[in-house]
Design a protein around this nucleic acid. Sequence first.
DNA 1: CCGTATCCTTAACGATACTG
DNA 2: CAGTATCGTTAAGGATACGG
Lengths: 134, 134
Amino acid sequence: MTSAASRDTAADPIDELIIDVFNRACPSRQAMETVADKWGTLALVALTEGAYRFNALRRRVDGVSEKMLARTLQALERDGLVTRDVQATIPPRVEYTLTAPGTRIAAALRALLDALEAEIPAIMTAREDYDQRH
Amino acid sequence: MTSAASRDTAADPIDELIIDVFNRACPSRQAMETVADKWGTLALVALTEGAYRFNALRRRVDGVSEKMLARTLQALERDGLVTRDVQATIPPRVEYTLTAPGTRIAAALRALLDALEAEIPAIMTAREDYDQRH
DNA sequence: CCGTATCCTTAACGATACTG
DNA sequence: CAGTATCGTTAAGGATACGG
């Protein structure tokens, strides 16, 4: 956005205010809040593979508790990223599916994950190096 | 990976075990742990704009406390995503820069953020709709 | 200026039990 | 099957003060 290298002595209160307002209003920031969530991202990525029912998804996203999965899916449904289809059978079936926006976001997420996976070997050795020096 | 639609009655203990092992070993999962972090992602994205010194970055990533920024930068340095350049001047200067892996990951992150920002209007209206029905 | 150390408060989370 | 409700624990995170 603006050059960072020049920011040096500063601490000008007006600068502070501008940066403050900018950050809070910044869409990146709001976007981050939505995506910086472990279970939410894992659920979105899992749903890339197709529709899932609650307990199937729970098994697929290993380690998630009933409570957290329910809460996560509600949040995703609220944001219009997944749809919740209830079939009034006995026992009840509830299927979760990605919406169009959800699909687009999940695709970007998967791209990020691919990028991350590509760096995992490098990250691992970096960690070992770092840990040995400390 | 495998078809999800067929997963239905299940709860087969062997299935469970396979899924369990798969999930824990899955690189996506490890990758997620690294990226599902609010401050880490914000710092990476900020460093896309160029090198930052500690307090400049602290102002740029609004709302982060000294403690969290320090902890975050240490984690990123440990993973080899940022480098920490200390200049032994008075007062000391410490500059943080993205490494090559860090740059690649930050790029993917930014792509995700762009995708998310594109959906923000849709998400907002979806939320209003949802909130009105509840 | 660049952090570390400490205390403290909140809420995230898991485990368990229960309902339609 | 698909959740909700409650409780207890733990860890994340902010505020503050101090050190190199």
